[in-house]
Simulated scan of single mutants.
Amino acid sequence: MTEQKQKIAFQGEPGANSHMACQAVRPDLEPMPCQSFEDMLEAVKAGEALCAMVPVENSVAGRVADIHHLLPESGLHIIGEHFQRINAMLLGVPGTKLEDIREIRSHVHALAQSRKLMAELGAKPVQHSDTAGAARYISEKGDKSVAAIGPRLAAELYGLDILREGVEDAEHNTTRFLIMAREGVVPPANNGRCVTTIIFRVRSVPASLYKALGGFATNGVNLTKLESYLIDGKFTAAQFYVDAEGHPEETPLKLALEELRFFCPQGAVKIMGTYPAHPFRIENIN
């Protein structure tokens, strides 16, 4: 493996929460910042990065917009998951006081997670492409009236003061990431708890979704996530994203998938990956 490939891609600038997730999961790889989610996934497809750290949902702000449209089209495989606790900091240029702040910049999710802070300070929220980018912006601007919400790493990288720690509204603020690679890495069956991510479409007939999901119920398979979204710009065509507990080679999920395929058009069921359940899932979700 060449040195160029020993990288893990993430969307955002150095110091972003995704950057911190990369350090937590694969400290042996060099974090590779990318401008967009498309660029991040393309870096893995092109072999410029070994894998990608992909944020998919946050416990406060909900799912990350548009990412579910990109995942099945990427051609990549999910090889793991990671839950990152988000500890948001209010950052300012050195010497800034809370009463100086008139504007707070950050990613839309970070702003949504810190409404109480902005109400307290009477500051105007301004959306930025990502948390670290907002930190870099205020560092370069040098204006004490403009602050940012971002992680501790961003403060260290851009020479900012931490004006207040833990500014998120909820203590449970956690983001779930998927680790994606060009080749699938499936753990052996019956060797610990697994999660299988499935993308599928059903026929446009009454009760098709009910019948398609029936196999999970009758075989005792727990679904931890089920989402739908439109495809091809049509209001009559929906695609479903499912996280199911279990391994496709274990009997319960194997039978459930057989029933799912029976009620879906041919080729409309795709397994995006089977990977070990993260300890956070085991300790906090069930």
Results as ranks from 00 to 15, higher is better:
Gly142Gln: 03
Ala65Tyr: 11
Pro33Tyr: 05
Val64Asn: 10
Asp130Trp: 04
Ile149Leu: 08
Ala148Met: 01
Ser74Arg: 06
Glu81Asn: 06
Cys51Leu: 14
Lys45His: 14
Leu111Thr: 04
Met32Ser: 15
Leu41Arg: 07
Ala49His: 01
Val54Asn: 01
Ser139Met: 02
Pro55Gly: 11
Leu117Cys: 07
Gln35Lys: 10
Glu81Leu: 03
Lys45Asp: 11
Lys45Asn: 13
Ile78Lys: 05
Phe83Asn: 09
Pro94Val: 04
Glu42Leu: 11
Leu71Phe: 08
Leu90Trp: 03
Pro33Asp: 13
Lys45Tyr: 14
Leu50Glu: 12
Ala88Lys: 08
Leu41Asn: 12
Arg115Pro: 03
Ser139Asn: 03
Lys45Glu: 14
Gly150Trp: 00
Lys144Tyr: 05
Gln113Asp: 11
Arg63Tyr: 13
Ala147Phe: 01
Leu117Thr: 10
Lys45Leu: 14
Leu41Glu: 07
Arg26Tyr: 13
Leu76Cys: 06
Glu156Ser: 15
Pro31Arg: 15
Ile101Arg: 04
Gly159Asp: 04
Glu140His: 08
Leu29Ser: 09
Val64Gly: 12
His82Lys: 02
Met118Trp: 10
Leu41His: 06
Leu91Val: 00
Arg26His: 13
Glu99Arg: 14
Met32Glu: 12
Val64Arg: 08
Pro55Trp: 09
Asp130Val: 05
His77Val: 03
Ser106Phe: 01
Asp66Gly: 01
Leu76Arg: 02
Cys34Phe: 09
His69Lys: 13
Phe37Ala: 12
Gly95Ser: 03
Gln127Asp: 15
Leu41Trp: 06
Gln113Thr: 10
Glu73Leu: 11
Leu153Ser: 07
Asp66Tyr: 00
Gly92Ala: 06
Leu50Met: 08
Leu70Gly: 05
Ser139Val: 01
Val126Glu: 13
Arg63Thr: 08
Gln127Ala: 15
Ser145Pro: 02
Pro55Glu: 14
Asp100Gln: 09
Val93Cys: 06
Leu91Arg: 00
His128Asp: 08
Lys124Leu: 10
Leu90Thr: 04
His68Leu: 14
Arg63Lys: 09
Glu140Gly: 05
Cys51Phe: 05
Phe37Met: 12
Gly122Asp: 13
Glu48Lys: 13
Ser74His: 12
Lys124Asn: 10
Asn58Leu: 08
Ser129Asn: 14
Pro33Ser: 14
Glu42Cys: 04
His107Asp: 15
Gly95Arg: 10
Leu111Gly: 01
Leu76Trp: 04
Cys51Gly: 02
Lys45Gln: 15
Val108Gln: 15
Asp66Phe: 01
Met118Gln: 12
Gly95Tyr: 08
Leu41Lys: 03
Ser129Leu: 12
Glu156Trp: 04
Gly159Arg: 07
Pro151Ile: 00
Ala65Met: 12
Leu111Gln: 04
Leu157Ile: 14
Glu103Phe: 10
Gln113Trp: 03
Leu98Met: 13
Ser145Ala: 13
Asn87Asp: 15
Ser129Trp: 07
Gly92Trp: 01
Pro125Arg: 07
Val93Ser: 11
Glu73Val: 06
Gly159Ala: 05
Asp66His: 01
Glu57Cys: 10
Lys116Gln: 15
Met53Val: 12
Glu81Asp: 14
Leu70Arg: 06
